[in-house]
């Protein structure tokens, strides 16, 4: 909490309104919120099935897959960014093919930011959802199956509501991590205002020149994320 107080004490309150209305601030904030949300959606789409596999399915190498899922947590984000470049870059394994076939390249695009954030934030979702799945009793699914529900229906109508709070908590964690993402983003997606410059990147570059501007940007990011997280908590987690 103390560093937070430091930010509040040192904030340039007198020039705050004028600094807040600078066009760059809003663009970076909008981009941050957009990419973090999209990254969370990507993580949900890929992460929930993956968590289900890890919790319910038995296949050889499951332990290894589980360990690999947590790799982005261990990896310094900058290394993650380089790894993404080596795969999705113009000379990368997949990126080279994408570029040659479709003339499409991920680095330095907003999509690239989403990819970088999803890469770093995914483990938070997978781990929470897997935990929730393990806590949920599989007999409910079996009961649904005996009543004639297909696997998908059972998952959608029985399992998903059971693990709802776990998924929500995972998504919130995932969103928060994506919002604060710096290293992988600046390495993989670069830094260009309005396109790939998210709030953490804007803060870092503002720090190069003007400490006050950096503090204002950090405060904005902080306030917005606390408001959103508090709101989500009441709505999703408080009721269950």
């Amino acid at each position: 909490m103390l560093p937070l107080a430091g930010l509040l004490i040192r904030a340039p309150w007198t020039t705050l309104p004028q600094r807040l209305t600078e066009p760059g601030v809003l663009a970076a904030l909008r981009l941050s919120l957009l990419t973090a949300t999209l990254a969370t959606v990507v993580c949900l789409l890929l992460g929930v099935p993956l968590a289900w596999l890890l919790a319910r399915a038995r296949f050889p190498g499951r332990r290894l897959v589980r360990a690999l899922v947590t790799v982005p947590l261990v990896l310094p984000p900058v290394v993650g960014g380089v790894a993404l470049l080596l795969v999705f870059g113009r000379r990368g394994l997949v990126g080279g093919w994408l570029d040659a076939t479709f003339g499409f390249s991920l680095p330095f695009t907003t999509t690239g930011v989403v990819v970088a954030e999803a890469f770093v934030a995914m483990p938070f979702l997978v781990i929470s959802v897997e935990g929730a799945l393990r806590g949920a009793d599989p007999r409910f699914e079996e009961a649904a199956a005996t009543l004639g529900a297909s696997r998908w229906t059972a998952f959608r109508r029985v399992t998903l509501p059971l693990i709802g709070p776990g998924v929500a908590a995972g998504a919130v964690l995932c969103w928060a991590r994506a919002l604060g993402e710096f290293g992988a983003t600046i390495t993989f997606a670069g830094n260009f205002p309005g396109r790939t410059q998210t709030m953490p990147l804007a803060v870092y570059l503002a720090l190069e020149q003007d400490l006050d501007a950096a503090i204002v940007l950090s405060l904005v990011l902080l306030v917005v994320s606390v408001v959103i997280l508090a709101g989500l908590r009441d709505r999703w987690l408080g009721t269950s």
């Binding site: 470049l85 870059g89 330095f108």
Partner: peptide, 20 residues
Amino acid sequence: TPVTLEQDVKAALAKVKLGE
């Protein structure tokens, strides 16, 4: 219009080295 504004000179150079 550059595709990216890097945080220091080494980072800009790295993008050339990587062929990006």
